[in-house]
Simulated assay, not measured.
Amino acid sequence: MSEGFLLSRVLLRFEDSSDDLVGELSAAAITPDGSLWVGSDELLGVERLSQVEPFVFGNHKHFSLLDFIELPNTEDEIDIEGMDYSHGYLWVMGSHSTKRKKPKRKDPEKDVERLSEVKSEANRYLIARIPIIDGNLIKSCTLKDDPEKKRTAALLETTKEGNILVESLKSDPHIGTIISSGLPSKDNGLDIEGLAVSKNLPIFSG
Protein backbone atom coordinates (compact mmCIF):
# COMPACT_ATOMS: atom_id res chain seq x y z
CA MET A 1 0.00 0.00 0.00
CA SER A 2 1.38 3.40 -0.97
CA GLU A 3 1.82 6.05 1.70
CA GLY A 4 -1.02 8.55 1.82
CA PHE A 5 -0.52 12.27 1.37
CA LEU A 6 -2.60 15.40 1.82
CA LEU A 7 -3.82 16.94 -1.44
CA SER A 8 -5.36 20.07 0.07
CA ARG A 9 -7.69 21.28 2.77
CA VAL A 10 -10.26 24.05 2.89
CA LEU A 11 -11.42 26.43 5.60
CA LEU A 12 -15.17 26.85 6.11
CA ARG A 13 -16.34 30.04 7.83
CA PHE A 14 -19.86 29.79 9.29
CA GLU A 15 -21.95 32.57 10.81
CA ASP A 16 -23.40 29.96 13.17
CA SER A 17 -20.80 28.11 15.25
CA SER A 18 -23.20 25.75 17.03
CA ASP A 19 -22.13 22.14 17.50
CA ASP A 20 -25.27 20.96 15.69
CA LEU A 21 -23.89 22.62 12.56
CA VAL A 22 -20.10 22.76 12.51
CA GLY A 23 -19.70 19.59 14.56
CA GLU A 24 -22.15 17.46 12.58
CA LEU A 25 -21.50 18.15 8.88
CA SER A 26 -22.35 15.00 6.96
CA ALA A 27 -22.84 15.86 3.27
CA ALA A 28 -21.60 18.32 0.66
CA ALA A 29 -22.10 19.32 -2.97
CA ILE A 30 -20.56 21.87 -5.35
CA THR A 31 -22.75 23.79 -7.81
CA PRO A 32 -21.55 25.19 -11.17
CA ASP A 33 -21.26 28.73 -9.77
CA GLY A 34 -18.63 27.48 -7.31
CA SER A 35 -20.87 27.52 -4.24
CA LEU A 36 -20.29 24.85 -1.63
CA TRP A 37 -23.46 23.39 -0.12
CA VAL A 38 -23.23 21.39 3.10
CA GLY A 39 -25.72 19.68 5.36
CA SER A 40 -25.73 18.69 9.02
CA ASP A 41 -27.29 15.47 10.24
CA GLU A 42 -28.81 17.35 13.19
CA LEU A 43 -30.74 20.13 11.42
CA LEU A 44 -33.67 20.79 9.07
CA GLY A 45 -31.80 22.81 6.48
CA VAL A 46 -28.71 23.22 4.32
CA GLU A 47 -25.92 25.79 4.23
CA ARG A 48 -24.42 27.66 1.28
CA LEU A 49 -20.87 28.99 1.32
CA SER A 50 -19.02 30.90 -1.40
CA GLN A 51 -15.31 30.88 -2.12
CA VAL A 52 -13.88 34.13 -0.73
CA GLU A 53 -10.21 33.31 -1.34
CA PRO A 54 -8.23 30.23 -2.37
CA PHE A 55 -9.23 27.26 -0.20
CA VAL A 56 -11.51 29.46 1.96
CA PHE A 57 -15.32 29.43 1.84
CA GLY A 58 -17.46 32.03 3.62
CA ASN A 59 -20.49 34.29 3.07
CA HIS A 60 -22.52 31.66 4.88
CA LYS A 61 -26.27 31.52 4.29
CA HIS A 62 -28.73 29.07 5.84
CA PHE A 63 -31.75 27.67 3.97
CA SER A 64 -34.51 25.90 5.90
CA LEU A 65 -35.94 23.07 3.82
CA LEU A 66 -39.31 23.79 5.41
CA ASP A 67 -39.52 26.85 3.14
CA PHE A 68 -39.47 24.69 0.01
CA ILE A 69 -40.94 21.26 0.78
CA GLU A 70 -43.45 19.84 3.23
CA LEU A 71 -41.72 17.57 5.73
CA PRO A 72 -43.65 15.03 7.81
CA ASN A 73 -42.96 17.15 10.90
CA THR A 74 -41.05 20.28 11.89
CA GLU A 75 -39.26 18.89 14.93
CA ASP A 76 -37.20 15.81 14.07
CA GLU A 77 -33.87 16.04 12.29
CA ILE A 78 -33.58 14.93 8.66
CA ASP A 79 -30.24 13.26 9.32
CA ILE A 80 -28.92 14.51 5.97
CA GLU A 81 -26.33 12.07 4.64
CA GLY A 82 -26.33 12.71 0.90
CA MET A 83 -26.28 15.79 -1.36
CA ASP A 84 -25.66 16.35 -5.05
CA TYR A 85 -26.35 18.86 -7.82
CA SER A 86 -27.89 17.88 -11.14
CA HIS A 87 -30.19 19.38 -13.78
CA GLY A 88 -30.54 22.69 -11.94
CA TYR A 89 -31.56 21.06 -8.66
CA LEU A 90 -29.92 20.52 -5.30
CA TRP A 91 -30.71 16.96 -4.23
CA VAL A 92 -30.87 16.05 -0.54
CA MET A 93 -31.21 12.61 1.02
CA GLY A 94 -31.79 11.50 4.60
CA SER A 95 -30.24 8.44 6.22
CA HIS A 96 -33.41 6.29 5.97
CA SER A 97 -32.29 4.73 9.26
CA THR A 98 -33.96 3.76 12.50
CA LYS A 99 -32.28 4.28 15.85
CA ARG A 100 -32.23 2.62 19.23
CA LYS A 101 -32.85 4.68 22.37
CA LYS A 102 -29.67 5.43 24.31
CA PRO A 103 -29.15 4.39 27.95
CA LYS A 104 -29.09 7.14 30.57
CA ARG A 105 -26.66 5.15 32.76
CA LYS A 106 -28.63 5.75 35.96
CA ASP A 107 -30.82 2.67 36.32
CA PRO A 108 -29.62 -0.57 34.65
CA GLU A 109 -33.12 -2.05 34.38
CA LYS A 110 -34.53 1.07 32.76
CA ASP A 111 -31.52 1.25 30.45
CA VAL A 112 -32.24 -2.29 29.25
CA GLU A 113 -35.82 -1.23 28.52
CA ARG A 114 -34.64 1.85 26.65
CA LEU A 115 -32.25 -0.22 24.54
CA SER A 116 -35.14 -2.46 23.50
CA GLU A 117 -37.00 0.50 21.96
CA VAL A 118 -36.32 1.26 18.30
CA LYS A 119 -37.49 4.60 16.95
CA SER A 120 -38.28 5.57 13.37
CA GLU A 121 -38.37 9.29 12.48
CA ALA A 122 -40.29 10.20 9.33
CA ASN A 123 -38.00 13.09 8.31
CA ARG A 124 -35.08 10.68 7.89
CA TYR A 125 -36.80 9.14 4.86
CA LEU A 126 -36.30 12.24 2.75
CA ILE A 127 -35.31 12.28 -0.91
CA ALA A 128 -35.88 15.78 -2.25
CA ARG A 129 -34.81 18.10 -5.03
CA ILE A 130 -34.97 21.90 -4.86
CA PRO A 131 -34.28 24.30 -7.76
CA ILE A 132 -31.28 26.60 -7.56
CA ILE A 133 -31.39 29.96 -9.34
CA ASP A 134 -28.55 32.49 -9.02
CA GLY A 135 -27.14 30.67 -6.02
CA ASN A 136 -30.41 30.53 -4.09
CA LEU A 137 -32.88 27.75 -3.40
CA ILE A 138 -36.37 28.50 -4.69
CA LYS A 139 -39.69 26.69 -4.54
CA SER A 140 -40.45 26.87 -8.26
CA CYS A 141 -39.53 28.82 -11.38
CA THR A 142 -39.88 28.91 -15.15
CA LEU A 143 -36.75 28.66 -17.28
CA LYS A 144 -35.57 31.90 -18.88
CA ASP A 145 -34.62 30.21 -22.15
CA ASP A 146 -37.79 28.09 -22.26
CA PRO A 147 -40.77 29.68 -20.44
CA GLU A 148 -42.90 26.60 -21.04
CA LYS A 149 -40.65 24.51 -18.80
CA LYS A 150 -40.82 24.76 -15.03
CA ARG A 151 -38.65 23.56 -12.16
CA THR A 152 -40.39 22.76 -8.89
CA ALA A 153 -39.23 21.56 -5.49
CA ALA A 154 -40.45 18.04 -4.76
CA LEU A 155 -39.84 15.03 -2.56
CA LEU A 156 -40.36 11.31 -2.92
CA GLU A 157 -43.76 10.10 -1.78
CA THR A 158 -43.78 9.17 1.89
CA THR A 159 -45.58 6.26 3.55
CA LYS A 160 -46.40 5.21 7.11
CA GLU A 161 -43.13 3.29 7.32
CA GLY A 162 -40.86 5.64 5.37
CA ASN A 163 -41.28 6.21 1.64
CA ILE A 164 -41.98 4.27 -1.53
CA LEU A 165 -38.28 3.45 -1.94
CA VAL A 166 -38.24 1.66 1.41
CA GLU A 167 -41.45 -0.18 0.53
CA SER A 168 -39.88 -1.33 -2.73
CA LEU A 169 -36.64 -2.45 -1.07
CA LYS A 170 -38.52 -4.68 1.36
CA SER A 171 -38.87 -7.21 -1.45
CA ASP A 172 -35.19 -7.03 -2.43
CA PRO A 173 -33.58 -10.50 -2.17
CA HIS A 174 -30.40 -9.10 -0.61
CA ILE A 175 -31.48 -6.47 1.93
CA GLY A 176 -35.26 -6.84 2.08
CA THR A 177 -35.26 -8.88 5.29
CA ILE A 178 -33.05 -6.35 7.07
CA ILE A 179 -35.20 -3.40 6.02
CA SER A 180 -38.45 -5.16 6.92
CA SER A 181 -37.10 -5.93 10.38
CA GLY A 182 -36.48 -2.24 11.15
CA LEU A 183 -32.98 -3.06 12.39
CA PRO A 184 -31.27 0.13 13.70
CA SER A 185 -28.36 1.52 11.71
CA LYS A 186 -25.93 0.99 14.60
CA ASP A 187 -26.88 -2.70 14.57
CA ASN A 188 -25.97 -3.04 10.87
CA GLY A 189 -29.37 -1.92 9.64
CA LEU A 190 -30.02 0.38 6.69
CA ASP A 191 -28.06 3.64 6.89
CA ILE A 192 -27.63 5.66 3.70
CA GLU A 193 -24.36 7.61 3.65
CA GLY A 194 -24.10 9.05 0.14
CA LEU A 195 -25.96 10.26 -2.94
CA ALA A 196 -25.06 10.74 -6.60
CA VAL A 197 -27.43 11.86 -9.37
CA SER A 198 -26.29 11.14 -12.92
CA LYS A 199 -26.98 13.12 -16.09
CA ASN A 200 -29.64 10.63 -17.17
CA LEU A 201 -31.32 10.99 -13.74
CA PRO A 202 -30.72 7.57 -12.18
CA ILE A 203 -30.11 8.16 -8.47
CA PHE A 204 -27.35 6.21 -6.76
CA SER A 205 -27.11 5.88 -2.99
CA GLY A 206 -25.13 3.72 -0.64
Rank of each mutant, 00 (worst) to 15 (best):
E167G: 01
M93S: 05
D67R: 15
L155C: 12
K61C: 07
G82I: 03
N123F: 05
H60E: 09
P103H: 01
G194Y: 02
L126P: 00
E109P: 02
V56A: 13
D191E: 14
S86T: 10
P103V: 03
E24I: 05
L90I: 15
L43E: 15
G162T: 03
S2F: 10
E193I: 07
D187C: 06
F57T: 03
S95R: 00
V10S: 13
H174Q: 14
T98F: 05
T152V: 15
I164G: 02
L11G: 04
M83Q: 02
S120M: 14
I179V: 15
L137F: 04
P131A: 10
I179W: 00
K160V: 09
K199L: 12
K150C: 07
S180P: 07
F204R: 04
N200Q: 10
G176P: 06
I133K: 13
A154Q: 13
K104D: 08
I133G: 03
C141D: 13
Y85E: 14
G94I: 02
E109F: 11
K149M: 09
A154I: 11
S8L: 08
G45C: 11
E193Y: 06
D172Y: 03
I78T: 13
T31F: 04
L6H: 14
R114G: 07
L126Q: 00
I69N: 01
L155R: 15
V56L: 10
F5T: 14
I138L: 06
L36T: 07
S86G: 13
D146C: 08
I164N: 02
G206P: 05
S64M: 09
P147M: 07
N163W: 00
R124M: 05
I164P: 01
E75N: 14
G4D: 08
S18P: 01
D41S: 11
I138E: 06
E77I: 08
N59H: 12
E77F: 04
E193H: 07
S95T: 07
I178Q: 03
L11Y: 06
A153H: 00
K104E: 14
L143A: 06
F68Q: 01
L36G: 05
N136K: 13
L7G: 06
S168D: 12
D67I: 08
R129K: 15
P131C: 08
D191A: 13
D33E: 15
V56N: 12
K150V: 11
L11R: 09
Y125H: 13
D111W: 01
K61T: 12
L44I: 14
F204G: 05
L156D: 00
R151N: 07
S86V: 13
L183C: 10
S18F: 04
L36M: 12
P184F: 02
A154E: 14
L49H: 03
D19L: 10
I133P: 01
F68P: 00
V22H: 04
R114I: 06
R114K: 11
